[in-house]
Design a protein around this nucleic acid. Structure first.
Length: 382
DNA sequence: TCTGGGGTCCTAGGACCC
DNA sequence: TCTGGGGTCCTAGGACCC
């Protein structure tokens, strides 16, 4: 048996929990501070009832409800709460996987009464954090996740062999995790509307349509999926940051300053996780170039922002981009390995000491207390 | 005047090795 | 003149999730 725990309107609920003035009000959390230039990251249930949903532009949301409360996202707060909730769930002694910031998966084996455990977890979360969660129970991960959405908010739903067919018949195929817009329209063309339609197809049919994904889908619907709860926290496979500028720019100095800032942000997180990266991926978007993405793997792994920056510029040069007009850009590091201590050369030792001191200062006085001078240029382009 | 930012996994082609 | 089979790594791009 798997319990899938899904926090209700997580970011918005946290904001309402810490600020009683916001309780009961339509509220959105925006991914950025400027409430006219961002999208809805999370909407409170009061806002959802008005037709506001995450992903929507805040402009549209404000048109629907001009008195909407707007709070810019504060990731740190949500990560902290997420970790605390995870800790609570772990105390029950079953293997737990962290699925995303607001979702957890619990393998309770052949537990007799999973519903009462689900209730207890809901109560604990509410008692400690004043927020609610919905919990789905089923024989495997995909169905448990599907179940968690059936009774939102603050609900519990169980999919058993008795109600399986009925539940699948009542849910549309696109509510399955892994079925997005593209897959949905493919399914639609084949006359597949509900999960039950999908359930009745042969594995060969699904494989021909979606390859490996189709086989996985078949396996999960028929409760023989290979996905298991590992109970181990996963190491990240990539770490990246991206940013959309308020308007396009061609000025190389600005663009380089932004690439530098993003490189430094990524590097700082690498050091936090004691990881080093071999592969840099640079992503640029602009009105003339559309999306440009290129990556390169280097001999020596690094956690140094200035090195990641230099590598990013190499990728840009290699891509043959000559003074492109840029609207958005991103730097992502992959090929991650655990950092082995001990630099060989005096120069590297100096560099490591410098970075350590930098991290220490920023850790104590706030993230942008000390940074390379080049980054200052981004301040002139906010 | 259109729309963020953080990720994962899969596929497919090319380069290269034995 | 023509040419196997197996494998890994790298890169680009697409689909999907929250």
């Amino acid at each position: 048996m798997i319990l899938h725990i899904d926090m209700d309107a997580f970011f918005a609920s946290i904001e309402q929990a810490v600020n009683p003035r916001l309780k009961g009000k339509p509220l959105i959390v925006g991914s950025r501070g400027n409430k006219l230039h961002t999208v809805v990251c999370a909407a409170s249930y009061e806002a959802k009832r008005l037709g506001i949903s995450s992903g929507m532009s805040t402009r549209d949301a404000l048109r629907i409800c001009p008195s909407l409360e707007f709070v810019p996202a504060e990731q740190g707060k949500y990560i902290w709460t997420s970790e605390q909730v995870l800790g609570l769930i772990k105390e029950h002694g079953y293997p737990v996987d962290y699925v995303s910031i607001d979702e957890f998966r619990l393998d309770v084996g052949a537990l007799k009464n999973p519903v009462s455990l689900a209730k207890r977890i809901q109560e604990q979360i509410y008692a400690n954090f004043n927020i609610t969660a919905s919990i789905g129970i089923a024989g495997n991960c995909l169905l448990a996740k599907l179940a968690s959405k059936l009774n939102k908010p603050n609900g519990i739903a169980e999919i058993t062999s008795e109600n399986l067919v009925q539940v699948l018949n009542n849910t549309s195929a696109d509510s399955l995790c892994g079925v997005g817009v593209k897959t949905e329209s493919l399914l639609d063309a084949k006359g597949i509307k509900t999960c039950l339609d999908l359930y009745q197809k042969s594995p060969r049919f699904l494989e021909a349509l979606f390859g490996k994904n189709g086989l996985n889908l078949y396996a999960s619907l028929h409760s023989v999926e290979s996905l298991e709860v590992s109970g181990e926290p996963e190491k990240p496979k990539s770490i990246g940051h991206s940013y959309t500028l308020p308007r396009s720019t061609k000025t190389p100095g600005f663009i380089r300053a932004w690439i530098r800032l993003l490189s430094e942000m990524v590097a700082q997180r690498l050091r936090q996780e004691t990881l080093v990266s071999e592969t840099v991926h640079l992503w640029l978007n602009g009105p003339e170039i559309g999306n440009f993405g290129a990556q390169k793997t280097f001999q020596i792994a690094t956690d140094d922002g200035s090195e990641i920056y230099t590598r990013s510029l190499k990728i840009m040069v290699r891509g043959g981009l000559k003074e492109p007009k840029i609207r958005a850009l991103g730097v992502t590091c992959g090929g991650l390995k655990v950092c082995q201590e001990g630099a060989l050369f005096e120069e590297e030792k100096r560099r490591d000491r410098l970075l350590k001191v930098m991290d220490k200062i920023n850790g104590r006085f706030g993230d942008s207390t000390i940074y390379p001078a080049q980054v200052t240029l981004t301040r002139k382009f906010q």
